[in-house]
Simulated scan of single mutants.
Amino acid sequence: MKRSMKLVTITVVFLLLFSLAGCSSSKQGVNSSSDSAPRLTDQAMEGYYVDARWLQENLDQVTIVDARADKEYKKGHIPGAVNISWQALSNMQPKQGEPGWGVVLSNEQLSKKLGEFGINGKKDIVVYNDPAGLGEDGRVVWMLRVAGLQNSRMLFGGWPAWQKAGGEETKSIPQIKAVSFSITNPDTSLLATTEYIKANKDKVKLLDTRSPKEFTGKTDHGERVRGHIPGAIHLHYSDALNADGTVKTVDELKDMFAQAGLKPGDEVIAYCTVGIRSGFMTVLLRMCGYENAKNYNASFSEWAGDPNNTIEK
């Protein structure tokens, strides 16, 4: 009888241990999805990027900006994120092809707009989008840095990386409290204009970040004519991305830029259709030590809008 009771006890203990092991395996299975999230391992990128794990740990300490379109934001976003599209901080009054279409707002207007979004520059800012877009996170960070907000960075891998990390999602729209903000230290070195390019065309290197078909004039994004600015080097902005939407390492980017004929000391002026893709690429160039990199914000739309400007195909 005692032996029988002992066998029963051993069996119960074994079953309990097996059950606990099963629970432990199940829990690890849940965490394995977050372990697959992209991690930021390149320290040279830390001034421009944070990863999803870091953001999860510092969620309440930063201002989060969702740079996606409003309809995507409403489907689900990071808790507390404010939806700020590139258009919200740009001059959308002119039509495409007209001077000034889509360029970053003046310092006075930009100060007011950022204040309306609750941004006063005191908190670090993390911007994210979907890498399947056109580099909108880079364009927004570029505008924030033009406004002197050097504490603005992007989310490594964007929205998909947040989802892979098991980050919380919400459809709740945060209540924005407007603040007073004034740009006191703008960084105009990030910006190039049509006039500047014409005056310095023999000193700068133009970088066309559009698709190969746009560069060769086989297609367009609404510009008056097709082609590219004479002498421009072509490097598609998406070449800077890995298959999972994360940005390549700084060493890989440096090699890519070097192969395109760009040197760190060059004054590189990137452009696209209206400074979105090129804004993203300008931020990456700066991250890689190209301290004279600029974004031609008005880009090919304004260049092609003037019939007096020469265009190549």
Rank of each mutant, 00 (worst) to 15 (best):
L55A: 08
L89T: 14
M287T: 07
S106F: 02
V141D: 02
S34C: 08
R210G: 10
D137Y: 06
Q163Y: 02
Q93M: 11
E116L: 14
L134K: 08
V225E: 08
T219Y: 00
A132R: 08
S172T: 14
L110I: 03
T170C: 09
K112D: 06
A270V: 04
A132Y: 00
E195N: 05
T246E: 10
G138W: 09
G289T: 04
V179N: 01
I197H: 00
K218I: 09
G102I: 07
Q87H: 07
Y73T: 06
L16N: 04
N83R: 08
G97V: 07
A298H: 05
Q175A: 10
Q259Y: 00
I125V: 10
D244Y: 12
I78V: 15
K177R: 07
L207P: 03
L155I: 12
A293D: 02
T246M: 08
G279T: 05
L235W: 04
K201W: 02
G245F: 07
L241W: 01
Y128S: 10
A147C: 03
S106L: 15
G102L: 11
T9N: 00
V13K: 05
M1R: 06
E136Y: 01
K254Q: 13
L191S: 04
M281W: 01
L262V: 01
M1W: 00
G245E: 13
N91I: 13
E72Y: 11
L7I: 09
E98K: 12
S172P: 00
N31K: 12
W54A: 14
N151D: 07
T273A: 11
A199F: 00
R145H: 03
G157T: 12
Q150T: 14
V82T: 14
V146C: 12
E214A: 12
L114Q: 13
D35F: 08
